[in-house]
Design a protein around this nucleic acid. Structure first.
Lengths: 178, 178
DNA sequence: TTTACATTTCGTTCTTTTCCGAAATTTCCG
DNA sequence: CGGAAATTTCGGAAAAGAACGAAATGTAAA
């Protein structure tokens, strides 16, 4: 950590805290930040050394980060050790995270809501309100899901273009959607 | 908990787990789910009883949920105790959460990135790549921030309309944005 | 103002999660 | 194959976070 430029150190620490707030652990987020800021792929040894973590811990975190699809394993010629590099396009990176969170959390939630709604085979009167709330949540998730699946299909440059249009885009759609 | 319809119990439990995954604690998320599914506002006492939690714990969670702007305190005539009800419009609810997360996490991150970029007063050669990465992240966050601030200004019904257009909306914009 | 009820604060305990390090396994070069 | 290097697994220690409950504070009706 002391070997890093202060500017990098500061960011890595902050990124770690953000990780915690989003249900990712500190270590994983820090490793990700380190790789993101690193020009060359790093091996596990270097990561332990820099961030002062146990080797095993780093190993697990790297696996996990690969599962999120935001870092990938690369082999450097003449070096037996695995090296890792982060996605560098920030836009792509957040898109990958979003897709993965959808898969891990939104999809199961929608399934559960459907289960709840099916399950109550004999619709008791007391359930009426609960069912109504769940229906409305289901509707929301389905809409969101449908929308994001469209977004996934778009290329990053198109999305950036839309985002840059900002209010112009939304106004346009707001008017035409009527 | 045993007093609840099974359908509600199931959802509350799941919502609690989702909370954990998103950096919200289980208790808070469960209380939120309970209020969301409840037709009438509930008081703290009832919440403890139903979810089997300590009174103090519930008190803190309720404060916290109010801070997120997704539940609010209401007074029932003839009852001295505070009662709480959840926002019921799911769309509005997630919008409130998004706005709050932006305020708590995205804004500070952007500030930190700016700090990093300013701080390194004497731009050392070794910082060059790090600065470049931070710049690109800054660009992304600014774009996202700008976009969401536009979204915040839109009415919920307009947003729903846009979302329902799905790919049609995006295609339209994708074509026009060129 | 008193008093009874309601809420919050705060230090402690308990649970969960993270992290470590030794041992086992895998990989791949000779 | 044999063996050195690298990685992963796994049980337990350490740290962090959540939840408790007693005491303090606040509140509003009498």
């Amino acid at each position: 950590m002391e070997t890093l430029p202060p500017i990098a150190r500061k960011f890595i620490l902050h990124w770690g805290e953000m990780g915690v707030r989003w249900g990712i652990n500190r270590t994983m987020a820090q490793i990700h930040a380190l790789l993101f800021l690193s020009e060359e792929p790093l091996n596990a040894e270097v990561i332990c050394g820099t961030l002062d973590l146990a080797r095993s811990n780093v190993s697990v975190a790297l696996k996990d980060l690969q599962g999120w699809g935001i870092i990938k394993l690369v082999h450097l010629t003449g070096d037996r050790r695995d090296h890792f590099e982060s996605m560098k396009d920030v836009f792509e990176m957040f898109r990958a995270i979003a897709i993965e969170r959808k898969r891990r959390e939104v999809d199961p939630t929608l399934r559960l809501i459907n289960d709840c709604l099916d399950d109550s085979g004999k619709p008791k009167a007391s359930d009426a309100y609960v069912r109504e709330r769940l229906e409305s949540m289901k509707e929301f998730f389905e809409l969101a899901l449908n929308f994001t699946s469209q977004v996934e299909r778009m290329s990053t440059p198109s999305l950036v273009r839309v985002a840059k249009m900002g209010d112009k885009a939304l106004k346009l759609l707001g008017l035409m959607g009527g």
